[in-house]
């Protein structure tokens, strides 16, 4: 069984390497290039809301850096690194939405479903392998890019600080926690579980709809509109909106996190203890059953 799952996961990686290996890596490379360029004085990024430039390191700033408590210094550095990684996470997030919508639709469209189903792999195993890929494997594929980005950012900043005599080389590295890698990976796994009903809904549409985008959107829009008309409430949209965002920022999360920070493992445990999380899990279980049933019974290979 482990060999079968390993094979199924390898197949997913091979099929979707552009979305989950090449695209995040390309984004990470661009970000690395931009960061290095800023620190080496080649360019800077200044907008009304955002300023990423070495000009900020004036005398006052340097003094504040040296006077900052270890905790404050660590908080700023960790938040900055998380912030830098957001474009990669957004790229993968869009990749996951596209993957979810296409994974069962594409196999119908090119009729490869006939080949997959000629192999002794049950529909349930196939669906679980895709879940395992979304929840567990994709976050692991993202991590090397995050680590690369953080390393380049830390190294570039350190070289800049040393060469400009701002702070010692060790300044940043003493506040860089390798354990944050684990926090990030656990947070991404938690995120995949939190957003799972959305991914599964899109997968479900791919198993039956001739136009998967319409198949996914129309029932949701209709439900949202009907709910507003009949009950004057907004629960369905609220559910979707929350699941598309970061789990630690959801309305149902017990702590209001105002600033960008690395989540603690205790935050994840807190999330697992919420009712909203388990409602999502129940919805996910129902959708898994629907996907297995529809994939095993639908012989319509027409997908536009």
């Amino acid at each position: 069984m482990i060999t079968v799952f390993f094979t199924m996961i390898r197949r997913e990686i091979q099929e979707h390497k552009v979305a989950f290996i090449y695209a995040p890596f390309a984004v990470a490379l661009v970000l690395c290039f931009v960061i290095a360029s800023v620190y080496f004085g080649i360019t800077d990024i200044q907008t009304n809301e955002f300023n990423f430039s070495t000009e900020i390191y004036d005398e006052d700033y340097q003094e504040a850096m040296l006077l900052a408590s270890p905790e404050a210094k660590a908080r700023v550095i960790r938040a900055g690194l998380i912030f830098l990684g957001l474009p990669i996470l957004l790229t993968v997030g869009f990749g996951l939405l596209a993957y979810s919508l296409s994974t069962f639709a594409d196999e119908r469209k090119d009729k490869s479903l006939i080949f997959w189903r000629s192999m002794p792999v049950s529909d349930l195993t196939t669906v679980f392998s895709k879940l395992l890929f979304v929840i567990f494997i994709v976050p692991l594929l993202v991590m090397p890019n995050i680590i690369l980005l953080q390393s380049v950012a830390m190294l570039s900043a350190s070289i800049y600080f040393v060469s400009n005599d701002i702070v010692p080389f060790s300044y940043l590295w003493t506040s860089y926690f390798l354990t944050d890698w684990f926090r990030i990976i656990f947070s991404l796994w938690a995120q995949a579980l939190w957003s799972l009903p959305i991914f599964l809904w899109l997968m479900f549409a791919g198993t039956y709809a001739r136009r998967p985008v319409i198949g996914a959107a129309v029932p949701l829009v209709a439900t949202i509109v009907l709910e507003r008309i009949i009950f004057k409430t907004n629960e369905v949209w609220g559910f979707i909106d929350n699941r598309l965002g970061f789990w630690s920022r959801a309305d149902s999360f017990p702590i209001a996190l105002e600033e960008i920070r690395v989540v603690d493992i205790s935050d994840i445990i807190l999330m697992l203890s919420t009712q909203a999380f388990w409602i999502g899990m129940i919805a996910s279980a129902i959708l898994v059953a629907g996907i297995v049933y529809t994939r095993s019974t639908n012989n319509d290979y027409t997908v536009e």
Partner: peptide, 27 residues
Amino acid sequence: CSITDVAVLPKWMTVDQVLNYVDGVHP
């Protein structure tokens, strides 16, 4: 075993990938 249509092998795969897949799932 079955062959129900000649055009059902996944087009995105390489020959090696499809062989390794079958090797992994078919005892």
